[in-house]
Amino acid sequence: MKITPEEVEHVARLARLEVSPDEKEELTRQMNRILQYVEKLNELDTTGVSSTSHAIDLENAFRDDAVEASLSRDVSLENAPESNGAEFVVPRII
């Protein structure tokens, strides 16, 4: 087994997800099956092979450091689940 139910719970916490006991069991089973499949990659010797993070070679994409128009505060808040008209409102954290 690659991943245990306890690890699934830990990963869920990292991902900010809740998992019910049933779900935990199912996820453990499914993730193990997928992780066992991807083990296939270990058939390949990749010593000295560079990583591809992007398929197209690009140099840094620079732009001028100039102020441009952006969304207004009102527009930015329009999709907020909760706002006071000036800020996003979240549960108390301190």
Partner: peptide
């Protein structure tokens, strides 16, 4: 499920075994 998988393969101790390996295979 994919968030869980992705979080797992990027989590401490697994990055080299999974993400780095997959990125190298991507080169191949």
């Amino acid at each position: 499920r994919r968030i869980m998988l992705g979080t797992y393969v990027l989590s401490a101790g697994y990055y080299e075994a999974y993400y780095k390996k997959a990125s190298q295979v991507r080169t191949l």
